[in-house]
Design a protein around this nucleic acid. Structure first.
Length: 434
RNA sequence: GGUGGGGUGACUGAGUGGUUGAAAGUACCGGUCUUGAAAACCGGCGAGGGUUUACCCCCUCCCAGGGUUCGAAUCCCUGCCCCACCGCCA
């Protein structure tokens, strides 16, 4: 959520900046809603103040020795009148507040100055290319055909068990999939200083409002039946970031003593993929369920820019250790997510598609999520609570990493070499699909 | 599922109808002392919103939502969550 005070004083400016995201801020509507809220609020408050004074008078009179009934009588009439008016105004104020709250929740975050202009992914700016896509002197298979060699990757079976966009993996493919998770976790914990954390895979609505999935993107989520209104998490970002919801970080007893906080968390992710019919229907690229190792930072506002660079660097380390060629792009305004102010995507080279495909998305959210979820820290200078900044990124998406490894490390005999760094996680096996 | 006990400020924890946004301690901030630090002592210190250049002032908030009352952190109802014990399941 944006700062309403900022919006009031920089309306035009905000509207201009939001246009970069192809969001048209309704200035007139905002002004109208804000005025309404202000007027109704002030009126209702003034009446309340009057009421309080009147009511306290009774207490004073009783203390001074007047009989209770008599004291009541002295103000009964005026109280009744006040109540009558107040009931109306209170309702007005409540409605006005609600309207502007709803309005505010649907305004996306303002993009960072460094975000390039542009409507869609074609305008994303490449900032780095790492590694050389391997040249093959034979026909490459994509991961689906490679997985088929020993029936260790089975989409038809998954479709029988559940439906489309799921996979069943067995044997060495499943082992490599699991090895990737362990490898990434260990790297981030041991080399990048992350705290490992395990969280629920279902969350309530408050959490989804906090990180910005709700109210606008409900259709992307799997909702559970039942009284609780629980949803399957679309990413670990939701439970992990919401750890700080309604908190002033710095309290003792929850292990959240000081910033920055850096969490690494492996979870499955569940996405309905509504609106992606026909896209990536083949293979493991776009599934309803996939594993991800997620990195989450919570930092002081003045450090978030630097932390974004650090975070994306941690994700890159994984690709480099796996020796997978990738490129790094800055998303343009139009491609930027709802809550983000700046995002780097890492795109890994997939020989089976002859293209770079997204494998990690690392974003700085500024105080946008923090304001929505009231996640604060105590500022040393002012000793006042202030909104912290949140960041997160995939480090990495497991399914897509498996795809990249299989395709890039394939051999002419259809076997797949196990990357050096993964071998310790696979009992030293050097080759699968043999 | 059953029974009982709870949810108060960053934390611990008092407070059962009257000007209490809330004792005390801890933490934090400022100061005295000190070569420096610690300790000790003194002072300050909840959050959000409105108005204001600012100060002042006003409103809201003691889990949430209703209710009783002139007046509620305090009484009543409902819900959520936590703790303990029992049962059941894993």
């Amino acid at each position: 959520m944006l700062d309403i005070k900022y919006l009031r004083s920089h309306l035009e400016d905000a509207a201009t900046q939001l246009r970069k995201k192809y969001y048209e801020l309704d200035i007139e509507r905002f002004k109208a809603l804000d005025n309404e809220r202000k007027q109704a609020g002030v009126d209702s408050q003034n009446l309340l103040a009057e009421r309080k004074k009147t009511s306290n008078k009774i207490g004073q009179l009783i203390k001074d020795g007047m009989a209770v009934d008599e004291a009541k009588k002295t103000v009964a009439e005026s109280l009744e009148k006040i109540d009558e008016q107040h009931n109306v105004l209170k309702e007005q104020a409540r409605e006005a507040q609600e309207s502007i709250d709803e309005f505010m929740l649907e305004i996306p975050n303002i993009p960072d100055e460094s975000v390039p202009e542009g409507k869609d992914e074609s305008a994303n700016r490449e900032v780095l290319r790492w590694g050389e896509p391997r040249i093959f002197d034979y026909d490459v298979l994509d991961h689906v055909d490679l997985g088929l060699q020993k029936n260790e990757m089975d989409f038809d079976l998954a479709s029988k068990l559940t439906g489309s966009r799921f996979v069943v993996m067995r044997g060495q493919i499943a082992a490599m999939h699991r090895a990737l998770i362990q490898f990434m976790l260990d790297t981030h914990i041991e080399e990048h200083g992350y705290q490992e954390i395990y969280v629920p895979y279902m969350v309530n609505r408050d959490s989804l409002y906090g990180t910005g999935q709700l109210p606008k993107f409900e259709e992307d989520l799997f909702k559970l039946e039942g009284e609780q209104n629980y949803y399957l998490i679309p990413t670990a970002e939701v439970p992990v970031t919401n750890i700080a919801r309604d908190l002033i970080v710095g309290n003792a007893g929850r292990g959240l003593d000081q910033l920055p906080l850096k969490f690494v968390c492996h979870t499955p992710c569940f996405r309905s993929e509504a609106g992606s019919y026909g896209r990536d229907t083949r293979g493991m690229i776009r599934q309803h369920q996939f594993e991800k190792v997620e990195l989450v930072h919570m930092v002081q506002p003045d450090q978030s820019e630097q932390h974004l660079e650090e975070l994306v660097g941690h994700a890159e380390t994984i690709l480099q250790k796996l020796e997978l060629p990738y490129r790094k792009v800055v998303l343009c305004g139009g491609d930027l997510g709802f809550s983000a102010c700046k995002t780097y995507d890492l795109e890994v080279w997939l020989p089976g598609q002859n293209a770079y495909r997204e494998i990690s998305s690392c974003s700085n959210f500024g105080d946008y999520q923090a304001r929505r979820m009231k996640a604060r820290y105590r500022d040393n200078e002012s000793a006042k609570p202030a909104y912290l900044h949140t960041l997160n990124g995939s480090g990495l998406a497991i399914g897509r990493t498996l795809v990249a490894v299989m395709e890039s490390y394939q051999n002419a005999d259809r076997s797949i070499t196990v990357p050096k760094v993964l071998q310790p996680y696979m009992r030293g096996i050097e080759r699968i699909n043999d």
